[in-house]
């Protein structure tokens, strides 16, 4: 007796979910490959590692390990390039933001749940808005790149790290703990 398997039941992934997960996969790969035109092409094994990590993240977008490909990309750009003179860093930033936004939308529900157009449109606008900070930061770093090092920059760095820690604690702490 068949319990109506496949009777209007979407056992397959929704097309919108597939598209989002492809973006989650492609974004970090594009970001690490963008270092090549900037003069520091990544080795093939690094691209493979990023692709594998991004693939795992695309498969389970709600996984906490989804941050791994982002950190590998950040690490390569920090280790290989150093300065922000190349505009290709903006391509890398776009790749990471697209992957993050797509992952956030994909993690709303199971892979079989389609994402409606209004949500995609909303998050596309948000992604573009957030992405505007990258060229601003790029312009600022280029302007300040020729300036001599300020004596209080390390103090400022430590203060920023402390502030980020406080914000993260406030954000990630559960409300039961407050009670």
């Amino acid at each position: 007796m068949s319990p109506l398997q496949g009777y209007g039941e979407p056992d397959d992934w929704a097309r919108s979910q597939i598209a989002l997960r492809v973006l989650v996969l492609v974004g970090p790969v594009v970001a690490v490959l963008a270092a090549g035109p900037a003069g520091h092409a990544p080795p093939w094994w690094l691209v493979g590692v990023v692709a594998a990590l991004a693939g795992a993240s695309a498969w389970v977008p709600d996984s906490p390990f989804g941050v791994a490909p982002f950190l590998v990309v950040l690490g390569w750009w920090a280790a290989a390039l150093g300065d922000a003179s190349s505009a290709w860093v903006l391509v890398a930033a776009a790749g990471l933001v697209v992957a993050h936004v797509a992952g956030a939308v994909a993690s709303y529900g199971p892979a079989t749940m389609p994402v409606d157009v209004a949500t995609v449109r909303l998050w596309a606008g948000r992604g573009l808005l957030v992405l505007l900070t990258a060229p601003v930061a790029w312009a600022v770093t280029r302007l300040l790149g020729d300036q001599p090092e300020q004596p209080g920059v390390w103090v400022l760095g430590v203060a920023a790290a402390c502030l980020a820690t406080v914000v993260a604690t406030a954000a990630l702490g559960t409300r039961e703990e407050e009670r």
Binding site: F70, L74, A84, S86, A93, L131, A134, A137
Partner: peptide, 16 residues
């Protein structure tokens, strides 16, 4: 970026 003096990472991290 602040500790290692890598401004490229600031550009990548700013949207996040």
């Amino acid at each position: 970026a602040l500790l290692a003096g890598e401004p490229a990472v600031v550009v990548l991290a700013a949207p996040f």
